[in-house]
């Protein structure tokens, strides 16, 4: 079932702030095996010109993808999440995410396409800090495989 094109451009309300914790950043850096001291050592981060430890580039996905749940679970849109795979992911940064940030995400349906019976949905998540400054934009492409593809 093709998704309704009229949802293109729809913007969902901003999320409640997510507070970025330094131990959460450490946990994430350890999980990806990344020993870069900018993620765990405040002095090392400061030596690079950051006010506090920063997060690895893909850390913010956990926040933007949760926010994208508003779109994915929108009953009016009617996406069949059991058929969804992650197609592409892009980030454009104004600055790195850092400990102490309180981040809100505003999700917008960027595009809806139908390719070979698959629904292809681009969701743009704009991430802002408490001062309202832009931090990062995440573009997540989700592909809902056609129902008749079932073996």
């Amino acid at each position: 079932m093709a998704l309704d094109q009229s949802f293109v451009g729809r913007t969902y309300p901003p999320t409640e702030p997510y507070e970025v914790g330094r131990e959460k950043i450490r946990e994430f850096a350890e999980a990806i095996g990344d020993a870069n001291p900018a993620y765990t050592d405040t002095e090392a981060a400061k030596a690079l010109g950051h006010p506090d430890v920063i997060a690895p580039p893909t850390f913010v996905f956990a926040i933007t993808f949760k926010a994208a749940g508003q779109v994915v679970q929108d009953p009016q849109l009617g996406l069949d999440y059991s058929r969804v795979v992650h197609g592409d992911q892009k980030f454009a940064y104004s600055r790195p995410v850092r400990a102490g940030d309180r981040l809100t995400v505003t999700s917008t349906i960027e595009s809806i396409k139908s390719l070979a019976g698959n629904d292809v949905l681009d969701i743009r998540g704009e991430v802002h800090d408490e001062a309202g400054e832009h931090v990062v934009t995440a573009i997540t492409k989700l592909v809902a495989r056609a129902a008749d593809e079932e073996a």
Partner: peptide, 28 residues
């Protein structure tokens, strides 16, 4: 996203400061 995170390390280890990454995208 794990694979994406590992691939980024080649860039961030090279650049030194992870904040050097202005844009980053992949297709799975």
């Amino acid at each position: 996203m794990f694979t994406m995170a590992e691939a980024a390390r080649v860039v961030t280890d090279w650049a030194g400061d992870p904040a050097a990454v202005a844009e980053y995208g992949v297709r799975f």
